[in-house]
Structures are given as structure tokens and as C-alpha cells.
Nucleic acid binder design. Structure first.
Length: 509
DNA sequence: AGTGCAGTTGACTTT
DNA sequence: TAAAGTCAACTGCAC
């Protein structure tokens, strides 16, 4: 049995794989010798939202974290198993009464696990201290004052990494860190150049501040320029290799110097939005499975048309720019925000798929999958929040606007590469004789559009306008707005159309 | 140089 | 983080 007087401090690493700006680690180190652990939880890494790239990225970050801890005279103990059973095993092997970690705003699985760990800790007399690592405020019921609290959080200077970490993990066995945390395979060639780890994260931040960020504001819209000029820090934020606060501090410092003010401000407002969306999941975990606006719950069929879903997932919808974006995403694990919105818009409005039928697929593709942002976004781009106006993207217009020369399409949809700049956005408009002379047969080398955009969108709008005639929709919209709505006065929200009242009809004016 | 007209641009509204 | 429609102001051009 473990010694009851142990002053050993157990630091449980989760989605915070770094040593800088890591308050639990610093506080634990001040309180006693540190035992650093990471748990590979089957329930987490085998869940439908956990992708192959996540397993690789996290494994890279873990290896680097272990190396960093070793430099501080410590090490990382890695175990596989469900959290409570592993914590109990370690406690019985070495004994500790203090457990430290960051607050996590995760999916249902990690939320339930955290509650179980809480109960376990209480029963064992272990004091578990959870500390926030971003602008998400635990226990907030509505959005009044949130923006101010976020600013407060970002004011604090990031914490330095500890200089030394007293070690006392004894003979505790640590598993070898695998090359990836799960055996999941996407069946798609991935060639992402994003490598997990705190050092890599800092290098990415440096290159953004020192050059890539110039023109960020303008260049983030097109997938042609976004890959280089967006920060691409999101995976490092999601897996915790870099804290939001430390990126915010570095960007503020560089603004007006190596980074133009407009670009820096644009990046900072995105850091703000990052936490804004996570806060929604923190406040209402049900949004993983239910529409923000419950009146939208049965709007679309819950069972997807399998052929439509498959065409969308594999980049075979017949809309060249859309397919290019999907294929690029699946290969690189990342695409810019605007194109993510377009992909979801197409699934939701053109294909009339319920967001719940594609959210896990998309989550597995995004190397920067962050549950709170993801659930909010797929719902928002599907129009089921009730507090945002419908934003329906035209894949052809987006293609002409964001990839006018068609170069991005040619790269990711090579079967169309012989088409001209004008033809490539709408190959179905090209005479079949001319297509044939270029060795392209639609329906064989590349599909015809699986739906007609204009027709599909018209139908979708009609369904929404019917929904908006129901009182329940507006009651729900008011509730969502109270709980989650941004308090920015500029935000535009749909307004209920005035009913033609008798009074209005007969008012003479 | 002024006028009429078709076509363009931009701000704003609607869905 | 949309797109299409409306309307008025503007532009270029012919006469």
C-alpha cells in the first residue's frame, strides 16, 4: 500500500503536451516531486471522432514531451488503459495524493471520464486540481461579461517552463510511445507536413510572425495562399503543444514590427473566436448530439443517403473546386476556414445531410480537431443554430473567386487538368465533343454534378422558410442567443419577419 | 458642350 | 465565414 504521507505530485498530461505556460506543472513542481503521466485511453483513441493523423501527431508530441521532461531531470510515464483504472494502478504502485491537470472541454467521452476521475479522486482522498489553459470559463451560465474575462485571461504573461523537475517515479513502468496512438486507418494517402511537438509549434509560430503572416488577412480566404500564409498553429493549440496565451503574447509583441497590424489583429480576433466557440461546448455539452436550436432536430433525415455521403467524402461530387478542397483536406489534414465552411454547406444544403451524419468523418480529417469549435461550426454551417443567417456557398462561385486560374483544381483533380481556366470550374457546360478531344468523358473520368446546386439550394431554403413560420423556432432562437450569442453589437442575426397584422393593414400612412 | 442611353459599380436589402 | 436581387449613381459613348 502506498505511503499516505507522500508529497508526490502527479501531473496528468492530456491535450496540453508542452512544458511552457503549463500552470499545473509549475504548481505541482512547487509543491513537491513530480510524476508526469500520459494515458492512452482506448475509449478516446478508438472513438469515431479520432483520426489516424491525430494518433500520429499526438505520438510525435509525446515523444518530444518525454525528451523535454528528461532534460529537466524527469520523464514521462505512459500507460494504456482507461483513465480511472490507470490512475488507480499508479496510485497503488507508488502512491500520490495530489493530481494536477488542465481543464478540458472535450467530447462526451472525455467529459464522462473526467467526472469518473473526479469521483475516484474523492473516494481515494486524492486532491485533483484542474486549471484553465485558455479563455474558456468553467461554470458560466450565459455570455454576459465573457469577452472581458477572455481579455483578462490573455493579459497574464505566459509561464516559463520549469528549470528543474524533482523526480520520484521510482521503478514505475512506462510503455514505449508508439508511432501512433491508435490503429485506425483512413485508407487515404496523407502527406501532412505538420509535426507534433512544442518545438515544432514554436517554429511554426516564429515563421508566421517573421514572414508568412504578412498578408494573412487577405490570403487566408483562398486555399491557394492559405496553406502558406495562415498561421497553421491550430493543431498545436488543439493538442496543447502551444498555449493560446503564448501565441497571443508573441503576436502582440511583433505587431507593427515584423507583422503588419491588420494581419496581427486579424489573427488575434481568431484566437478570441477559438475560445468563443469552445465556450459553447463548455456551457452546453449536449451540442455534440443535439441541434443548438431544438426546433431543427428533425429538419433533415437522420440516416444519410449513403451514395451522396460517399461522393462528398471522396471528393467525387462533380463540382471541381469542392472536390479539390475535399481531396486536399484529406491529403494534408488541413484546409482553410472558408473552404471548410463551403464543404459543410454543400453537405448540409446541397446534399441535405444531417450534420450528425458527417461530423465524425470531418473530425477525423482535421488535424486540428477541437470538439467545441467543430460541433459549433458544423451546426452553424448547417443552419441549425437559429441565431445565424443561412450562409449557403456556391462551389462554382467560390472556385472562380478563390482559384480563378484553376491551378488548385488542376493540382487536386488532375483528371480535369487539361481544361482551360474558364472551362475547369464548370466542365459540364463544355461541349462533349470538345471534352472528348481532351480525353475527358464526364461520368467516366470525372462525375457529372451529383445534384444541381440551384435546384437543391432552392429546396433547402424553402424548408428553412417553413421552419421559420413556427413559434418553437423563435423561442429556441431566443434561448440559444441568451446562452451562447456573441455580445458584439455588430453581429447580424436573423430577425423575425413582422406578421401582417390587421392593425398594420389598416394604418393609414 | 449637353443629352440620352446602355452598361457598370457599389451600397443596401432579402432570402 | 453567402449569394442574389434592387436601386441609384456613375461612366463611356454616340449624336
Amino acid at each position: 500500500m502506498a505511503s499516505r504521507s507522500s508529497d508526490l505530485q502527479c501531473v496528468w498530461f492530456k491535450r496540453d503536451l508542452r512544458i511552457s505556460d503549463h500552470r499545473p506543472l509549475v504548481e505541482a513542481a512547487n509543491a513537491g516531486p513530480v510524476l508526469a503521466i500520459f494515458i492512452i485511453e482506448p475509449a478516446v483513441v478508438e472513438a469515431p471522432d479520432y483520426g489516424e493523423i491525430h494518433g500520429v501527431f499526438q505520438a510525435q508530441a509525446l515523444r518530444e514531451l518525454d525528451a523535454a521532461l528528461k532534460k529537466l531531470g524527469n520523464r514521462l510515464v505512459v500507460r494504456r488503459g482507461e483513465a480511472v483504472e490507470v490512475l488507480e494502478a499508479i496510485r497503488s504502485e507508488i502512491g500520490f495524493q495530489a493530481l494536477w491537470s488542465h481543464e478540458e472541454t472535450g467530447n462526451e467521452i472525455t467529459y464522462r471520464r473526467d467526472r469518473e476521475v473526479g469521483i475516484w479522486a474523492k473516494n481515494r482522498g486524492v486532491v485533483w486540481t484542474e486549471i484553465s489553459q485558455n479563455g474558456v470559463i468553467r461554470g458560466l451560465c450565459d455570455r454576459d461579461g465573457w469577452a472581458g474575462l477572455w481579455r483578462e485571461r490573455m493579459k497574464d504573461a505566459p509561464l516559463d517552463a520549469p528549470i528543474r523537475l524533482r523526480e520520484r517515479s521510482g521503478q514505475l513502468v512506462s510503455e514505449e510511445i508508439p508511432n501512433k496512438l491508435s490503429n485506425r486507418e483512413e485508407g487515404w494517402v496523407t502527406e501532412t507536413d505538420m509535426v507534433g511537438g512544442e518545438i515544432e509549434g514554436r517554429a511554426v509560430l516564429d515563421s508566421f510572425i517573421e514572414g508568412r503572416g504578412k498578408g494573412y488577412r487577405k490570403k487566408m480566404s483562398s486555399p491557394v495562399t492559405a496553406y502558406d500564409h495562415c498561421s497553421r498553429l491550430s493543431p498545436y493549440f488543439s493538442w496543447g503543444c502551444l498555449s493560446i496565451r503564448s501565441a497571443v503574447a508573441r503576436v502582440r509583441e511583433a505587431m507593427g514590427k515584423s507583422l503588419p497590424r491588420a494581419d496581427g489583429n486579424s489573427f488575434l480576433s481568431r484566437c478570441h473566436w477559438h475560445c468563443h466557440f469552445m465556450q459553447k461546448l463548455e456551457a452546453e455539452p449536449e451540442i455534440e448530439h443535439h441541434c443548438f436550436n431544438r426546433a431543427c432536430e428533425n429538419l433533415r433525415p437522420r440516416n444519410p443517403d449513403p451514395e451522396r455521403l460517399e461522393a462528398w467524402c471522396s471528393g467525387q461530387t462533380g463540382y471541381p473546386f469542392l472536390d479539390a478542397c475535399m481531396r486536399s483536406l484529406r491529403t494534408r489534414g488541413w484546409i482553410n476556414f472558408r473552404m471548410r465552411a463551403m464543404l459543410v454547406s454543400f453537405a448540409a444544403y446541397d446534399l441535405w445531410l444531417d450534420w450528425r451524419s458527417f461530423k465524425d468523418f470531418l473530425a477525423r480529417q482535421f488535424i486540428d480537431y477541437e470538439p467545441g469549435i467543430h460541433f459549433s461550426q458544423v451546426q452553424m454551417q448547417s443552419g441549425v443554430t437559429g441565431i445565424n443567417t443561412l450562409r449557403i456557398y456556391s462551389p462554382v462561385k467560390q472556385g472562380r473567386d478563390q482559384d480563378p486560374s484553376g491551378g488548385f483544381i488542376r493540382r487536386w483533380v488532375p483528371e480535369l487538368s487539361s481544361l482551360s481556366e474558364d472551362q475547369i470550374h464548370e466542365p459540364w457546360l463544355v461541349q462533349s465533343g470538345e471534352l472528348k478531344s481532351l480525353d475527358i468523358v464526364l461520368g467516366r473520368h470525372y462525375p457529372r454534378p451529383i445534384v444541381d446546386h440551384q435546384t437543391a439550394v432552392k429546396k433547402a431554403r424553402l424548408a428553412f422558410s417553413e421552419l421559420r413560420n413556427m413559434d418553437e423556432f423563435w423561442e429556441e432562437a431566443a434561448r440559444v442567443n441568451r446562452r451562447h450569442g456573441s455580445r458584439r453589437p455588430t453581429e447580424k442575426r436573423p430577425k423575425r419577419r413582422k406578421k401582417e397584422s390587421a392593425q398594420q393593414e389598416f394604418t393609414l400612412q
